[in-house]
């Protein structure tokens, strides 16, 4: 909270860092009765590199939160594989999977719902340490107080209950809990969306500081592309259960290669009247189709301003492929975007 604020570039160790997490062709279908399924995540592959922040954006219902939980192993996959280093997480069950949870933590969206109201803040932060029998007694207490200090809270607050704290403070508690086991990957699932603007900046800065200090890797999920772009090294855009684009966060703004990304960028309001008034909105026609019965071919073709119908867009599914070095998009006509 009180680190001196320095203007500095926080770009991380570089794009060549090895992969920490590999996601291969992961599918998650939720049965909704009468033999129909919601295809929440429908075949996605990507990797998260050691020490980077990978942003994941998309609109409500695109499957981004589900994907986050699949990576964090809070939901079982329908098919596909998730690796942490060389360990295939999706094959583990029971105690073996539980042991891997030390490496994977998650920060939730709702700081009011994600803390057990019947537990003290100290017990909440200590829980992972107790569950894995890492430490106990005085040492445990000291660690909890240290974690509280790390996230910018008064270390003597450990006897208090969550409802005595504001939204921003609760989110700091959730972050302290996620840090307790020194995890390698933290999934931030809309971790700042529920907070006020001025508090959002505090938490974003805290996450950045912690990443540097503890060499953390983040999967940062949010619907707000401006925040995601700010915090992420690379940004991944999801639409209707599929990844449509992955690119460096600077690149994705300057040269989007998927028409959906472009429309999304044009829709984000910029806090600058001159820029905002001069902006041209790329209006998407129609509504997001149902994930129960997604469109054939390219899932975006029903709303795409540059789609060529019926073929190839409505018939051939475009693959997510390298368009420029390290810039992947799933579009037949990405050169026209």
């Amino acid at each position: 909270m009180a680190q001196p604020v320095r203007r500095q570039d926080l770009r991380p160790m570089g794009a060549s860092a090895p992969a920490l997490v590999r996601v291969e062709n992961v599918v998650k279908h939720f049965p909704v009765g009468f033999g129909t399924t919601v295809k929440a995540v429908d075949g996605v592959s990507f990797e998260i590199r050691q020490g980077e922040t990978l942003g994941l954006v998309g609109e409500s219902g695109c499957g981004k939160s589900t994907l986050g939980r699949l990576v964090a192993q809070l939901l079982p996959v329908t098919s596909g594989r998730v690796f942490l280093d060389d360990v295939e997480l999706t094959r583990l069950r029971g105690e073996k999977l539980r042991q891997q949870r030390r490496e994977l933590q998650i920060i939730f969206q709702d700081p009011f719902a994600s803390l057990d109201p019947r537990m003290t803040v100290g017990d909440i932060i200590a829980e992972p340490l107790v569950n894995f029998r890492v430490m106990r007694g005085k040492k445990l207490n000291a660690r909890v107080q240290e974690l509280l200090r790390v996230v910018g809270l008064n270390p003597y607050f450990n006897n208090r209950y969550p409802h005595e704290f504001s939204g921003g403070q609760r989110q700091r508690i959730g972050i302290a809990r996620a840090l307790a086991l020194n995890p390698r990957l933290i999934v931030c699932d809309e971790a700042i969306s529920a907070l006020d603007v001025s508090i959002q900046a505090q938490i974003v800065n805290l996450l950045e500081d912690l990443q540097r200090e503890f060499r953390l890797t983040y999967l940062f999920i949010a619907h707000d592309l401006s925040v995601v772009r700010h915090i992420s090294d690379r940004v991944m855009v999801m639409y209707l259960g599929k990844i449509v684009e992955i690119a460096d966060s600077l690149e994705i703004y300057n040269r989007p290669k998927h028409p959906y990304t472009k429309a999304l960028l044009s829709a984000i309001p910029v806090p600058d009247p001159r820029v905002q008034r001069g902006k041209r909105l790329i209006e998407l026609t129609g509504e997001i189709p149902s994930p129960i019965n997604p469109p054939s071919g390219c899932r975006f073709h029903t709303r795409c301003p540059i789609a060529r119908l019926p073929t190839p867009c409505a018939e051939v599914e475009p693959q997510l492929e390298d368009k420029v070095r390290g810039h992947m998009a799933a579009c037949h006509f990405s050169q026209e975007v």
């Binding site: 939980r69 809070l74 939730f108 709702d110 994600s114 057990d116 569950n131 809990r177």
Partner: peptide
């Protein structure tokens, strides 16, 4: 509820989930 999911992420065993959360 999210805090139960959070307990699972924190590595709580089933007994702890049932009687602790």
């Amino acid at each position: 509820r999210e805090f139960v999911e959070a307990g699972r992420a924190a590595g709580a065993r089933p007994i702890k989930m049932l009687f602790g959360h």
